[in-house]
Each structure stands twice: as C-alpha cells, then as structure tokens.
Simulated scan of single mutants.
Amino acid sequence: MTRYRTIVSLFAFATTAFALQTSPGLAFSSEAQQMCTGDAMRLCSNEIPDIPRVRACMVQKRAEVSPGCRAVMDREHAATTSRKREAAAQ
C-alpha cells in the first residue's frame, strides 16, 4: 500500500507540474511551478490529470492559495492582460 501511495503521489506531482508549465491562462514559469505546485496538489488534486480542470480549479480557489503562488499568479495574469491589450491596440 505504501508503494502504491508513493507511485500515485509521484504521478500526481508530475502531472501537476506539467499542468502548471503548460497552462496558458497561468503561463507558468519555473517560479510559478515552484510556488504553486504544492497548492495545486493541496487544493486541486481531485482534478489531476485533467489540465484544464486543474487550471480552472486554481483560478477558482485563488483566495486559498499561498501568498507566493498568488503573487506569481497575479503577476503572470497582469503580463498576459497587458500583452492582450497591446495586441488589440495594433
């Protein structure tokens, strides 16, 4: 049973890390991956491995994420919003 839990935990961690790296809404840098993986595992583990659902869960539970993860999410959201505005202005 312990081996099974270890395998499941490693799979969940790897899937969450992948989701955080590839989520366009949260444009996850290595900093975001480092700061948010624990929150994704804690808050959204039931959504793994469905990447869009993990992303939506993190956004929905933004108020519950750690301050470091929230800061990264806010900063990367602001950068995405800025790029969209610049593209629309052209």
Results as ranks from 00 to 15, higher is better:
Met1Phe: 10
Met1Asn: 12
Met1Pro: 03
Thr2Cys: 11
Arg3Ala: 06
Arg3Trp: 02
Tyr4Val: 15
Ile7Asp: 08
Ile7Gly: 06
Ile7Ala: 08
Ile7Gln: 03
Val8Trp: 14
Val8Phe: 08
Leu10Asn: 12
Phe11Arg: 04
Phe11Gly: 05
Phe11Ser: 11
Ala12Trp: 07
Phe13Met: 08
Phe13Gly: 05
Ala14Met: 10
Ala14Arg: 10
Thr15Val: 05
Thr16Cys: 15
Thr16Asn: 00
Thr16His: 08
Thr16Asp: 07
Ala17Val: 09
Phe18Cys: 07
Phe18Val: 02
Leu20Asp: 08
Gln21Arg: 15
Gln21Lys: 13
Thr22Arg: 14
Thr22Ala: 11
Ser23Cys: 14
Pro24His: 04
Gly25Val: 02
Gly25Lys: 09
Gly25His: 12
Leu26Thr: 06
Leu26Tyr: 00
Leu26His: 00
Ala27Ser: 12
Phe28Arg: 00
Ser29Pro: 07
Ser30Asp: 15
Ser30Phe: 15
Ser30Asn: 15
Glu31Arg: 03
Glu31Thr: 08
Ala32Trp: 00
Gln34Asn: 09
Gln34Tyr: 03
Gln34Leu: 01
Met35Thr: 01
Met35Gln: 03
Thr37Ser: 01
Thr37Ala: 07
Gly38His: 04
Asp39Leu: 05
Asp39Pro: 04
Ala40Met: 01
Ala40Arg: 03
Ala40Lys: 03
Met41Ile: 08
Met41Pro: 02
Arg42Leu: 07
Leu43Phe: 00
Leu43Thr: 04
Cys44Arg: 07
Ser45Ala: 03
Asn46Thr: 01
Asn46Tyr: 06
Asn46Gly: 10
Glu47Ile: 01
Ile48Leu: 06
Pro52Leu: 14
Pro52Asn: 12
Arg53Val: 09
Val54Trp: 01
Val54Gln: 01
Val54Gly: 00
Val54Pro: 00
Met58Gly: 05
Met58His: 01
Lys61His: 10
Lys61Ser: 07
Arg62Leu: 11
Ala63Gln: 14
Ala63Arg: 06
Glu64Asn: 06
Val65Trp: 05
Ser66Ala: 10
Ser66Lys: 02
Pro67Ile: 11
Pro67Leu: 14
Pro67Trp: 11
Gly68Tyr: 02
Cys69Arg: 10
Arg70His: 05
Ala71Cys: 04
Ala71Asp: 01
Val72Ser: 02
Val72Phe: 04
Met73Gln: 08
Met73Asn: 03
Met73Cys: 06
Arg75Trp: 05
Glu76His: 02
Glu76Ser: 07
Ala78Met: 03
Ala78Asp: 03
Ala78Tyr: 04
Ala79Phe: 09
Thr80Val: 13
Thr80Ile: 15
Thr80Pro: 08
Thr80Gly: 09
Thr81Phe: 10
Ser82Asn: 05
Ser82Ala: 15
Ser82Val: 06
Arg83Ser: 07
Arg83Gln: 14
Lys84Gly: 09
Lys84Phe: 10
Arg85Pro: 09
Arg85Thr: 11
Glu86Pro: 07
Ala87Asn: 11
Ala87Glu: 10
Ala87Ile: 11
Ala88Phe: 01
Ala88Asp: 03
Ala88Pro: 01
Ala89Trp: 04
Ala89Asn: 12
Gln90Glu: 13
Gln90Phe: 09
